[in-house]
C-alpha cells in the first residue's frame, strides 16, 4: 500500500502541473518545448564538470591513492565503533553515488539488509547526498571557482550523519 502511494506521487505532481496550467490557459506545449531546449543547454554546460569530477575520482580509486590516503583514518574509525565493512561506504558516499551504491549492495549480499551493517548502510545511504558531485554541478553551472566553506560544511554534515546512524543502530532503536 505504502509502495503504491509512493509510486503515485510523481505522476500526480505532473498531472497537477498540467491541470493548473490548463486552467490558467497557458500554451503548455510551447512552454514545454522551450523548457526542454533550456534543459539541453544546461546538460551541455555541466558536462565538462561531470567529466572532470568523474575522471579525478576514477583516478584516485584505480591508482590506489584513495586507499593510501585513508590508511591512517582506518584505526580511528574502527575505534569509534564503525564496523569495518561500513568504512568504504563512509568514504565513497560524498564522492560517488554509483560507487557507494555498489558498496551497499555488497554489504546486503554478504550480511543481509537487516544486519547491523546492513541497517547502518541503508540509513547512511538514505540520509546523505553525493556532496562533492552536487557542489561541482551547482557551482559549475555559474562557473565559479571559489566555493568558500561549502565543501567543509557539507562534509561535516555527512560525518554527523554517519555518526548518528551508527549510534541509532547501536542503541537498537531499529
Amino acid at each position: 500500500m505504502l509502495n503504491y502511494i509512493i509510486m503515485c506521487i510523481v505522476p500526480i505532481m505532473i498531472l497537477t502541473i498540467i491541470i493548473i496550467a490548463t486552467k490558467e490557459k497557458k500554451d503548455i506545449f510551447k512552454l514545454f518545448i522551450e523548457g526542454v531546449l533550456d534543459g539541453l543547454k544546461t546538460v551541455y554546460n555541466i558536462f565538462p564538470y561531470i567529466l572532470a569530477i568523474t575522471i579525478s575520482i576514477g583516478l584516485l580509486k584505480s591508482t590506489g591513492a584513495l586507499n593510501i590516503l585513508l590508511y591512517p583514518l582506518k584505526p580511528i574509525l574502527l575505534k569509534l565503533g564503525i564496523p569495518e565493512d561500513i568504512i568504504p561506504l563512509c568514504i565513497m558516499r560524498p564522492l560517488s553515488g554509483g560507487a557507494s551504491m555498489s558498496v551497499v549492495m555488497d554489504i546486503f549480499n554478504t550480511s543481509g539488509p537487516d544486519s547491523v551493517s546492513g541497517k547502518m548502510a541503508s540509513i547512511i545511504m538514505g540520509a546523505t547526498e553525493t556532496t562533492l558531485y552536487t557542489i561541482t554541478i551547482l557551482f559549475g553551472a555559474i562557473k565559479l571557482k571559489k566555493i568558500r566553506g561549502v565543501l567543509i560544511a557539507g562534509l561535516i554534515a555527512d560525518f554527523v550523519a554517519v555518526v548518528t546512524s551508527i549510534i541509532l543502530v547501536n542503541l537498537k532503536i531499529i
Binding site: A21, F32, E34, G35, D38, T54, G58
Partner: peptide
C-alpha cells in the same frame, strides 16, 4: 571515466530535459 561520464550524461539527457520542460510550464 570518460566513457562512464558520457554514458551517464547521455542517459540523463531525456529525463533532465523532460523535467526542465514540465517545470517551465509550472
Amino acid at each position: 571515466s570518460g566513457k562512464n561520464a558520457t554514458q551517464n550524461v547521455i542517459s540523463l539527457i531525456g529525463m533532465m530535459c523532460f523535467w526542465s520542460g514540465i517545470f517551465n510550464v509550472f
